[in-house]
Design a binder for these strands. Structure first.
Lengths: 187, 187
DNA sequence: GTCTATAACAAGATAGAC
DNA sequence: GTCTATCTTGTTATAGAC
């Protein structure tokens, strides 16, 4: 494993703090202290705190899809892949002690005050939904009575609901509920 | 309509700002400016900004249930009441320009750093779910094949998912999707 | 109960030495 | 590229006059 560069370390530290404490509750001073760098160094790599926020979200999106891909690498059945997606979101929640979805969190915090970030999150969620749709279509024509679009909406909304609910309840129950429902939806 | 008292005006102004800008992005100075009072007055009514936050959430919960009750006052069929709940959440989103759920937002922002607030939100969501369960049970034994508990989880998660999704997409599409699914779920 | 003044501190960002 | 020192502004909260 090669040495972590300064820029990468800043993003990693900032990510943890933004995620655990919230973006607005995390100060530049705390970031530089925990990354063990000077403030001038930070502003050499990032033009502003907002710039750092964007780098954070970009990195998290990358992690999200890479993490999902590696979790389904040994699964061939499309239905199993959908269930694995539920398990993946569950695993993310558990390993973060139910800290929630990075993207829902940041939108809850900044609303639409930052159009670039808002648009990025919107597109990210579209990608997640597209991924579900692809898996649904691969489940074949012999699916349920519903059309694939409705099933896609259904599963997407259930998972999003499960994530926010598990964040509030600090447990994984909602993912178990979703799996039960999804198993009934798919052939 | 009787005159709005100072305390009520503070809560109203703070609520709007907390909701639209976020709790951490709203300063005491902005609240007193828009409520047109002095800072000493604010701290006479509330011991801290956190105290004001709790008053805000309490008021919003009150508004939430009152608003729901008045929206179903002329509906007798339990199934129609459930669909009216979806419409109610949709209406709340539309009238706030898709600003999201007060309770999900505050948890996204503060996490579990404030146990009192966290617990309040958790209990609030339990109340919402209990309300759904009651309506499901009133739909009668001739419900779907699923047990009432599973149907309750299903509808609760779908609605929560629809709220966060409509916040990110800034439209009501997800509520239409939920209504379609819910209609298929109930007798 | 409401006001003004101010304390005590932290925020994001910049300048310029090395 | 990294550092320290500093600027400006904003933060929550308190003291004490009226």
């Amino acid at each position: 494993m090669k040495k972590e560069k300064v820029r990468e370390r800043i993003i990693r530290v900032a990510s943890e703090l933004f995620y655990k404490q919230g973006f607005n509750s995390t100060g530049i001073n705390q970031i530089i202290a925990e990354a063990d760098i000077a403030i001038g160094s930070l502003y050499n790599h990032f033009s502003s705190k907002n710039d750092l926020l964007q780098a954070y979200l970009l990195k998290e999106e990358e992690n999200w899809f890479e993490g999902f891909e590696s979790s389904v690498i040994n699964i061939s059945e499309p239905k199993e892949k959908i269930l694995a997606l539920v398990d993946y979101r569950k695993k993310l929640q558990q390993s973060s002690k139910f800290a929630g979805c990075h993207f829902i969190k940041i939108i809850s915090e900044i609303g639409d005050s930052n159009p670039v970030v808002f648009d990025f999150v919107k597109k990210h969620k579209e990608k997640q939904k597209d991924l579900i749709k692809l898996l649904i279509i691969n489940c074949g024509e012999t699916s349920s009575a519903s059309e694939p679009d409705i099933t896609t909406d259904n599963i997407f909304l259930l998972i999003e609901g499960a994530v926010v609910t598990s964040t509030i309840n600090k447990n994984s129950d909602s993912f178990g509920q979703v799996k039960k429902i999804v198993e009934g939806l798919l052939p």
